[in-house]
């Protein structure tokens, strides 16, 4: 599963670099991590206590920062293991300088999923990842804002080119949704334009597709939507934390 995009910050490259090299900040913006424990130079043990649906769990993982070229680029390698699946993530981080001297963070990542999250709902997860990525950068902006009281923080998402991966198969509800979606999105490009569309996809799948045979709402969480919630939560743990 691919996640990529670009985010502009109204600070210099060097400043952004120092933020990103701070384990606390790194923890904030790195997929799946709430705490980083330093285990060596640029090597961290990741800790995330997450409640996933009906199960509370501690998620083990490790994170390495490698190929550091200050202040231009670095690579994050991360592994997360849990009951409902594992993720091996590699993200290429590049910091470009814009014409007006700001830093533009370009990220290009690939997550290899395995276990239940790989075979259940994986194809809607890239949509989830997209939403979460946005949240991650908003959190980082907020953090920078708090620390750079004098610095303007009107950074914005200037480009998001995460391609929705081709989804040749759809379960029934997704097929139908696809049709609606196709009508909403311009047909001649495969880029999903708006978050509302993405959220709609997620929401549609989370809801039981038919009320014909269903139970009380509370009961539904016991299984179907519970599973999807679990996956969505897990994914939050992979791609960002609040």
């Amino acid at each position: 599963m691919k996640v990529n995009g670009k985010h502009e910050f109204k600070i210099s490259r060097e400043k952004l670099w120092s933020y990103l090299m701070d384990p606390e900040v790194l923890a904030k913006i790195t997929p799946g991590v709430s705490k980083l424990e330093v285990t060596g130079e640029d090597q961290f043990k990741t800790i995330s206590d997450i409640k996933i649906g009906p199960v509370k769990g501690s998620f083990k993982g490790k994170l390495n920062v490698v190929e550091k070229t200050e202040p231009e680029s670095f690579v994050i390698n991360m592994e997360q293991h849990s009951k409902i699946g594992n993720a091996h993530v590699k993200v290429d981080m590049k910091i470009d300088e814009t014409e007006n001297g700001n830093a533009a963070l370009i990220f290009d990542g690939n997550a290899k999923l395995s276990g239940m999250i790989a075979r259940t709902g994986q194809r809607v997860l890239s949509g989830v990842a997209n939403v979460i990525t946005k949240e991650v950068f908003e959190a980082l902006e907020k953090h920078i804002e708090e620390n750079e009281a004098t610095t303007a923080t009107e950074s914005k998402v200037v480009e998001k080119n995460e391609k929705v991966e081709s989804t040749p198969l759809h379960s029934k509800e997704k097929r139908q949704e696809k049709i609606v979606e196709d009508k909403l999105v311009e047909r001649d490009n495969t880029i999903v334009e708006t978050n509302s569309v993405k959220e709609k996809v997620i929401e549609t799948v989370t809801m039981p597709e038919k009320e014909k045979v269903t139970s009380t709402n509370a009961a539904t969480t016991a299984n179907e939507s519970g599973l999807l919630n679990s996956i969505a939560n897990f994914f939050k743990s992979i791609f960002g934390s609040k």
Partner: peptide, 13 residues
């Protein structure tokens, strides 16, 4: 990577 990515009734049509 050899992952079966539609291994449930929510994913396999």
């Amino acid at each position: 990577t050899g992952q079966l990515i539609n291994g449930s009734y929510m994913d396999y049509c």
